[in-house]
Design a protein around this nucleic acid. Structure first.
Lengths: 184, 184
DNA sequence: TACAATATATATCAATCTGATATATCTGTC
DNA sequence: GACAGATATATCAGATTGATATATATTGTA
């Protein structure tokens, strides 16, 4: 249990909220989870198959609008295993920023080319920030005390706050690197 | 070139500053790079061998204190390839926080158990913050305009600022989750 | 109406990386 | 002299990515 792969639990978690297809699971990752987790189809589909094999999820072949889909639903055993995993201590929190790596070695290419990486980073953050702000706004308005919304609000707020910190750092970086006229 | 693995360039970058053993490379990752990049021995040693094969790095078998070491040194070709990679646009910046995942699904286990994850997260951040603050302090005092220190300062400052943002979020999370008396 | 572009949907695989494990020597200390 | 901890290298099963392939439905537009 302790060393089972995490993708199992990420998918069980999503399915604990509602039944989904593999494609929909990928979409959730690319939107809701975007800033703290990601996964590729190459891990989602094989994981779903193994979860079915282990009786943690059931697979239903449905046809919608003349299109074939596999709808996955979590079982009681799946819910139980998810809970067991959720209480285990976190094993890894990882930040892997290629931008920071290129900034670290920026002395090899000079301030002007390094600033390009920082501008690209800033653009991506500015592009993603509004959806996080919207999520925080929407979740703040909900008053329901019983629901999961508190937890969703916490993750969205995390994203909003660190993205704002990123933008502050970008301003600082531009000040530090932009003051020089040399390009190499 | 565009799709060569990143570990090549991380190692070339470190070796562009000074010659190192595989063990020392790992140590740099675990200290200096800790908060924005990591690597295991299982990728470092094989990568070093392939870099030697490609003529980007030379390997020197030395004996120090009666102990055998392999010292790796970057070649001119290696320096050139590193520069070419550094100017390429960043392909991926990734945050993968298991803590956030467990907070997101916190409704399944309740506020009390979710708070434990947040406390653990907070402890780790508080433990790592002083070394980042020390690095920022030290690098700020350096006045040398020609050196790489500006770039090191930028990465250290990034770490300091986001770690501070994390701690602010922890306070907020404790307020949101701590106010309830229910434990499930 | 025809066409292109995009979204929906699943599947597979080589290349890569992690985490664990193994082995061996050196250093400090009790 | 026994033990823990640091130094040093190596390998491998299992997990994951990024690319690629295939096929149908929907939407916009000319």
């Amino acid at each position: 249990m302790a060393n089972e792969k995490k993708m199992n639990f990420v998918i069980l978690g999503l399915l604990s909220h509602e039944s989904l297809t593999g494609y929909e699971i990928k979409k959730r990752m690319d939107t809701t989870f975007k800033f703290f987790w990601s996964a590729s189809y190459g891990s989602i589909y094989p994981t779903l198959n193994s979860l079915v094999q282990d009786g943690l999820v059931t697979k239903l072949d449905i046809t919608e609008n003349g299109r074939d889909k596999m709808l996955y639903t979590i079982t009681a055993a799946g819910k139980e295993l998810l809970k067991q995993w959720l209480v285990l201590p976190v094993t890894k929190d990882e930040l892997r920023y290629e931008t920071l790596m290129k900034v670290f070695f920026g002395g090899k290419i000079g301030p002007s080319l390094t600033l390009e990486h920082i501008h690209n980073f800033e653009s991506k953050i500015k592009n993603d920030l509004p959806s996080l702000e919207g999520a925080v706004q929407k979740l703040t308005e909900i008053q329901d005390e019983e629901d999961d919304h508190k937890y969703f609000l916490l993750t969205a707020t995390f994203g909003k706050q660190i993205y704002e910190a990123y933008l502050e750092w970008c301003e600082y970086a531009k000040k530090i690197l932009g003051g020089t006229s040399s390009n190499q």
